[in-house]
Nucleic acid binder design. Structure first.
Length: 117
DNA sequence: GGTCTGACCAGGG
DNA sequence: ACCCTGGCCAGAC
């Protein structure tokens, strides 16, 4: 693995670790914030195998608000974990990103209107 | 090198 | 809302 890619991976994991309970981030969003816009697919690859770590991997979904892990057998688990955190899925199996997507900037001062406004 | 694949994404029909 | 397409780029052969 190349050095730049290793650094990218570390930044992605660091971001995932900061996602608050009940909130989510998308693959593309993580890629961009980690300094690799366009590397959304790599983020999925990086997260593969993280299901047994203490990182909140379940809080990463795709840009359409859908679970992307059914294909690798973690779909039901991921959805269950998120629902247990209070994330709501609609009839189409999607979450309302406008409400639950998390951006690091929210840490210090709330900016995004996720508080149901 | 070449080629295929993927826990993706945005756009178009 | 759906499906398809092209673009994307690191890994694995």
């Amino acid at each position: 693995m190349t050095e730049p890619m290793r650094a990218f991976r570390e930044r992605v994991l660091a971001l995932v670790a900061r996602i608050p309970e009940g909130r989510v981030m998308t693959y593309g969003q993580l890629a961009t914030l980690a300094g690799g816009p366009g590397n959304a697919r790599q983020v999925g690859f990086i997260l593969n195998g993280l299901a047994q770590t203490d990182l909140p991997w379940q809080r990463v979904i795709n840009a359409q608000g859908r679970i992307s892990t059914y294909g690798v057998g973690f779909g039901e688990l991921q959805r269950g974990l998120l629902e247990r955190e209070g994330v709501h899925f609609d009839d189409a199996g999607r979450v309302d990103l406008a409400r639950v997507q998390w951006w690091p900037e929210e840490d210090g001062a709330g900016q995004q209107g996720h508080l149901g406004l």
